[in-house]
Design a protein around this nucleic acid. Structure first.
Length: 392
DNA sequence: TCTGGGGTCCTAGGACCC
DNA sequence: TCTGGGGTCCTAGGACCC
């Protein structure tokens, strides 16, 4: 999906239409200062023109908005994240895709992989084949849609899906059609927003070669830096190295990269991923060592995590982990795996089980509030709690 | 200058077992 | 006094993704 959160807000509230929007934490705009300490989740394209983008500190986004206002442009509309709403839309999009493909993998709240090899013949019998093929122009790209058999049927289905999503939710998405997930993902990102890119069997390497290596999923700032120091800027440059070279450079991940650079990816679609952990964390408005205040917030996090776990359908978990982040961003974690799984389903009143869980979690947190694990009395910026190792 | 919140996966070292 | 090799589980930290 394109600028998913911001697009939904824009579609839901006509008064926002055409205005610059940043969805994220509260900028705390008071008396001419933006003091909020979160980041931007999603900015729509209008706001991106101001230099506002995902993960930008909200205070900086606020500054950019103020500057734009001074220059006679529109102020940015800052909106809180409404996950529940986005989740509902995400499910609706899944349902639309599911009509056209038997195998759908939700990769995140706004990304889906779906397999059209098996459903193309299915669609011959149904409505997608009745859709007129719109003229699709991909500016002088060698990867532009062409007329050829099943690829064209796949193309029709994807155009239909794009159209249904646009009709129902008034938002756009970008689609990549390719022989595997790796290429499809990169292709989908190539022409955002409202993009549509097809990379056929055999074209994978030509498609990848000129792209910056950072375009490969999994190559982030650190790996990018290591690669850059070894003279790798484009995906093409990766091919100068044997996989032994890449293993020496990056460990096991180097082997992955060796194949990715050649466009090779045989990973299967995963339709139902089970959660492996459930956690919540909060950054305080002001760093603090106030045990009562921290305890209160931490207790709420525990309550939420416990509730979400009960809703998950799992019965018990084995590991509790807590996170503490100090002023200066130094972050510590403590985990404890219980001898017996923590059973939330039976044997006790659920209120009792929750209380016991909170006590266990609190035992892990407390040393950070006093000299045991915080001898310098550093102020705390964030606390979090997470559970993992689930059993049914 | 400041750096959210929800996750997944990997690594390294230590404890422990046979 | 000097000490292998295979394996599992656990903890802490880090890279990465949306």
């Amino acid at each position: 999906m394109d600028a998913f959160f911001a697009s939904i807000e824009e579609a839901d509230s006509p008064i926002f239409k055409g205005k610059p929007i940043a969805v994220g934490s509260d900028p705390h705009s008071v008396a001419g200062f933006g003091t909020g300490r979160g980041v931007v989740s999603t900015a729509n394209y209008k706001a991106r023109k101001y230099g506002i983008h995902s993960a930008l500190p909200i205070s900086q986004a606020w500054q950019l908005s103020q500057k734009a206002k001074k220059d006679g442009e529109e102020e940015v509309i800052f909106l809180p994240v409404d996950m529940e709403r986005y989740g509902v839309v995400s499910c609706g999009i899944y349902d639309i895709i599911k009509k056209y493909s038997k195998v759908v993998e939700p990769a995140s709240i706004d990304e889906f992989y779906f397999d059209l090899t098996s459903s193309v013949s299915l669609r011959e019998r149904s409505e997608a084949t009745d859709v007129a093929i719109p003229e699709v122009e991909i500016a002088s790209s060698p990867f532009a849609p062409r007329n050829d058999g099943n690829w064209q049927k796949a193309e029709k289905i994807c155009l239909k899906i794009k159209d249904e999503i646009k009709q129902k939710y008034k938002i756009t998405c970008s689609v990549g059609i390719a022989p595997n997930k790796l290429i499809a993902k990169i292709a989908a990102g190539m022409q955002k927003p409202d993009g549509f890119v097809i990379v056929r069997q055999g074209d994978e390497e030509n498609f990848l070669e000129p792209l910056p290596v950072r375009e490969l999923p999994g190559v982030g700032p650190k790996t990018g830096e290591i690669l850059s120091k070894n003279g790798v800027e484009k995906i093409k440059d990766l091919k100068k190295f044997s996989y032994e070279d890449l293993y020496d450079m990056l460990g096991k991940y180097g082997i992955d990269l060796y194949y990715k650079a050649k466009g090779i990816d045989d990973s299967e679609l995963v339709e139902n991923r089970e959660a492996k952990s459930i956690g919540e964390q909060t950054t305080f408005d002001n760093d603090t060592l106030d045990a009562v205040y921290i305890g209160e917030i931490f207790g709420k996090l525990c309550d939420n995590v416990f509730l979400r776990f009960k809703e998950s359908g799992f019965k018990s978990f084995k590991t509790i982990a807590i996170t503490v982040r100090f002023t200066g961003f130094e972050t510590k974690t403590t985990a404890k795996t219980l001898r017996a799984p923590f059973d939330t389903s039976q044997g006790k009143h659920s209120g009792q089980a929750k209380k016991e869980f909170k006590i266990e979690a609190l035992k892990l947190l407390l040393p950070y509030l006093d000299s045991r694990k915080n001898p310098d009395n550093k102020l705390i910026r964030l606390v979090g709690v997470k559970i993992e190792n689930f059993t049914t």
